[in-house]
Amino acid sequence: MIRFEPMSGGCQCGALRYHIEAALEGPELCHCRMCQKAHGAPAVAWGTIPAAALVWSRGLPAEFRSSDHAVREFCARCGTPLIFRPDGQGTIDIALATLDQPQDIAPEEQYGIDTRMPWFPGAHLLPAKPSPGRGRTFQHPDHDTPTWP
């Protein structure tokens, strides 16, 4: 369990913004094939909170029912996948990268090891290159904004 502190987050374009007031349980790194496809990613880092602890401060997400037992929520405008909502459990999982400050929230467990990429545990040993300059972006900043854009 990771600290209790209010946190905000949202999608890439800023059409969706949320605010949470709850301790993050987990957090976990999931390598399962459903998470891989939902995020187009090798693994997804999640934190679990009570469903009622999240409020949408801007916009509402689109929902895709990925199985009979859960829904995945994303931004219909920019595509960012944000939330995994299992039915009837009263909790939701937040994709940690959608928080404004995800840098230091480390997962405590890894799950879905059967579909983990064989290269994953050694990824930190690969050569590193910082980003080149990128010019003007249209991404929402990593803090709440009174209006946007």
Partner: peptide, 18 residues
């Protein structure tokens, strides 16, 4: 969705997959 001046990001409008 155009995320910056020269960059497009593609995703599924039905399920969200980037």
């Amino acid at each position: 969705w155009r995320s910056s001046e020269h960059v497009e990001r593609g995703f599924c409008a039905n399920c969200g997959t980037p």
